[in-house]
Write a protein that binds this DNA or RNA. Structure first.
Lengths: 215, 215
DNA sequence: TCAAGCATTGAGTGATAACTTAATTACGCC
DNA sequence: GGCGTAATTAAGTTATCACTCAATGCTTGA
């Protein structure tokens, strides 16, 4: 029971205080839902199945999470809050604001940070990705979060790199798209096609990215 | 009615002869299913809804497609057969076998071909992508198709480029991953985030890819 | 023209889905 | 230790799901 809270995958829920005001049984529901949603998708999972796996009565789901969608939201919301901005706050402080002497340092820092985050939350990321493809409103939330602090910070940083003639003169949005494509490719390969996340493979990808975007 | 067959989106079904041995009403079912699956996903769509949109009785779906999953397979199978190998056959003949003088020619040809294919089949691609994320067996089919003619052809071509010192000395699988990441990024941006497929944006991405993988 | 056979219909079926609710249990506080 | 509140249960309830099937319509070739 307490083991659940020590699961690395659940770190993000502790950080975003989702577990506060939750009983042990309710945490079990959340954890069971994450497991099953990640495996076979939200729409293919019944609340009865979740309750059975969590070892609680089905009604307990609805007294805490209101409805099935509410349970999904409890899983997805921390991701939307974290995938760009929340853990990004920490990231901006420790990484982005320090001066990068080379483009390689810049991308090495960003990509490794993001890959580590995504790999450490693979089940939740799977749920999030699937739902993002289905649900326009989830995509809209991403766009909004993206337009906030994350965008202005990284935008600023890219302009600084352009001023130093370190990075190619493309629209920042194009630069970011290439950056996230490479990161996404690594993650998709890992999550869905069983490819390794070995350090040298990631270094190769970072090397390619640096070449792609150097001036 | 006949209009359906002129829909660009359905080209792939004509090419793979899916429409043969189908009545007009059965084609309507297939087309309606594509529309609704693409919009809200397979699991969230009822057979009744498909029948209503197609203007037929619900039972008609089951007499032709056996069950709901059979209907999905009729949509997905041509994609699996085409996304790598089938349209790739044509592509290999007209493009891959001619000698490329520069890496830019090589990627320009490949990326534009793939982007055009994916953009011309956006609804079906959306269905395919969603189902790929859910269904292990679909992923397995991709891996198998990938390991066939497509792989040996492109592998050969990449080795030739390496011999000419035109391309970076990474594993071919790593090169392909970077290539497909960039292509995928363009498509995801277009299909799910409403970004344009303008020629100069694609040229920029190709330019970045060439730099990334040049020796 | 008509019979045979395939396409099509739509009412019907059992299963299962999400969700409700009234009763029961557990828990914190004086 | 008992009282009030919140957590939990389990047996419903209603709706909807995929799918069946017997009856009907349509086409085609002799």
């Amino acid at each position: 029971m307490v083991n659940y809270l020590e699961d690395v995958e659940l770190q993000i829920f502790k950080e975003t205080h989702v577990f506060e005001n939750m009983t042990t049984k309710q945490m079990h529901i959340l954890v069971a839902a994450i497991d099953i949603f990640a495996e076979k998708g939200y729409a293919n999972t019944s609340t009865k199945e979740i309750a059975t796996k969590a070892g609680v009565a089905e009604g307990n789901i609805f007294s805490k999470f209101k409805n099935k969608r509410g349970l999904l939201n409890a899983i997805i919301a921390p991701i939307i809050d974290s995938i760009f901005p929340a853990s990004m706050n920490d990231f901006i402080k420790t990484r982005l604001t320090k001066e990068y002497s080379t483009l390689h340092d810049f991308f090495d820092s960003i990509i490794k940070d993001r890959v580590a985050f995504l790999a450490a939350n693979s089940k939740i990321i799977k749920i999030f990705v699937s739902e993002m493809l289905y649900d326009q409103s989830v995509r809209q939330q991403i766009i909004e979060k993206f337009s906030g602090a994350y965008w202005s910070n990284i935008n600023q940083e890219l302009n600084r790199l352009k001023a130093k003639h370190l990075i190619v003169e493309l629209d920042n949005i194009e630069i970011l798209k290439i950056m996230w494509s490479i990161t996404g490719g690594i993650i998709i390969g890992h999550l869905y096609f069983g490819q390794s996340l070995s350090a040298d493979k990631i270094d190769h990808a970072i090397g390619a990215l640096v070449k792609a975007l150097s001036r």
